[in-house]
């Protein structure tokens, strides 16, 4: 199994290629949307590159559970409710949702995912 550093390097290469950002901008703390400028189509591109780089399969909605964020069961008045937070946590054990919980508006979610979360996600996939 590759080390955390090896995974980070490959994730970084995928993000540099997909987003056209400089290597030094891709730090573990950088947010995918806010700092690196990822748009929705970029996530599909990134998924392609990660699948290839790590020989893994990433089912739709696993990395970015858009279905939760658009569900009336989990979202009210533009905010994710307690059940929604619980769902996100169970679906995204790799992501640190602490900041999002403090202000769980759907709009904020895009800014939650960091490079470190991506690395943890890939780590969970290559381990599985």
């Amino acid at each position: 199994m590759p080390s955390r550093d090896e995974i980070f390097e490959k994730v970084r290469a995928a993000l540099v290629d997909a987003l056209g950002v400089d290597e030094e901008d891709v730090t573990p703390e950088a947010t995918m949307v806010g700092d690196l400028g990822a748009e929705s189509i970029d996530f599909l591109d990134i998924v392609f590159r990660l699948e290839k780089a790590f020989s893994i399969k990433i089912p739709r909605g696993e990395l970015f559970p858009e279905d939760v964020l658009s569900s009336s069961e989990f979202v009210a008045d533009g905010k994710v409710n307690a059940a929604g937070i619980a769902e996100l946590k169970s679906r995204m054990p790799f992501a640190d949702l602490t900041k999002f919980e403090a202000n769980p508006s759907v709009q904020n979610f895009a800014n939650t995912l960091t490079v470190e979360d991506m690395v943890r996600y890939v780590e969970s996939k290559v381990a599985g």
């Binding site: 599909l44 392609f48 590159r49 699948e51």
Partner: peptide, 9 residues
Amino acid sequence: MDIKAAGSL
């Protein structure tokens, strides 16, 4: 480079 159901590169 890659063709899948949802997209291609």
